[in-house]
């Protein structure tokens, strides 16, 4: 069988380390997946099947857990994760417009939230707790407050410019 041979020659050492760190305990699946996602930035299918098999649980169960929690990504995310806060305070201060502006700028839709060059992923998040600065946009871990359409465009352009410079180097 092809599949069996493939796995023979492939090992996921980091994943093994992570699983071992949690004593192969299936009840620690969530922290394990979090640690794996920290490594990969998403949860590749092969890795999840591997985790399931080593823990003696079914891949469907792992898939079920991974798809239940919004923090787990099953597809690779862009290098920059742009999160728009849509908590009550931001919503009241029209975070919707910010989302629209970002979608326009990045050419994204509700369904397709990662740019084709994998530079940006757009997400919404319910309340980052920076309500005083509403509406708020967070790029990776950096918070940008009191956003509007113009500031959104500036922000994205700056990142693109910086990236292009890096690429050339």
């Amino acid at each position: 069988m092809k599949a069996a041979q493939m796995s023979l020659t492939r090992k996921f050492e980091k994943v093994c380390d992570i699983i071992a760190r949690y004593n192969n305990d299936p009840s620690k699946l969530i922290p394990m997946l979090q640690a794996i996602q920290d490594e990969y930035r998403y949860l590749p299918e092969e890795v999840m099947v591997f985790v399931a098999t080593s823990l003696g649980i079914s891949p469907a169960k792992v898939y079920g857990v991974a798809t239940f929690y919004s923090h787990f990504a099953l597809k690779p995310k862009g290098k920059f994760i742009v999160r728009v806060c849509d908590g009550t305070a931001c919503h009241v201060k029209r975070s919707e417009d910010i989302i629209d502006a970002l979608r326009d700028k990045l050419n994204l839709t509700e369904k397709e939230n990662t740019t084709s060059d994998m530079l940006f992923t757009l997400e919404t998040v319910s309340c980052l707790g920076a309500c005083g600065l509403a509406p708020v946009v967070v790029v990776n871990d950096e918070v940008h407050g009191e956003m509007n359409r113009a500031k959104v465009n500036e922000l994205i352009d700056a990142i693109i410019k910086k990236e292009a410079a890096n690429e050339q180097r």
């Binding site: 299918e45 079914s58 469907a60 898939y63 239940f68």
Partner: peptide
């Protein structure tokens, strides 16, 4: 004890699926 199908996703998007949304034939 097979657990080949399970709930996936959340809320109104919940469905009962084989792992990774594959077909039954492609899972255990």
């Amino acid at each position: 004890g097979v657990g080949v199908i399970d709930f996936a996703h959340r809320g109104s998007k919940v469905s009962v699926l084989p792992s990774f949304g594959k077909n039954l034939n492609d899972v255990e």
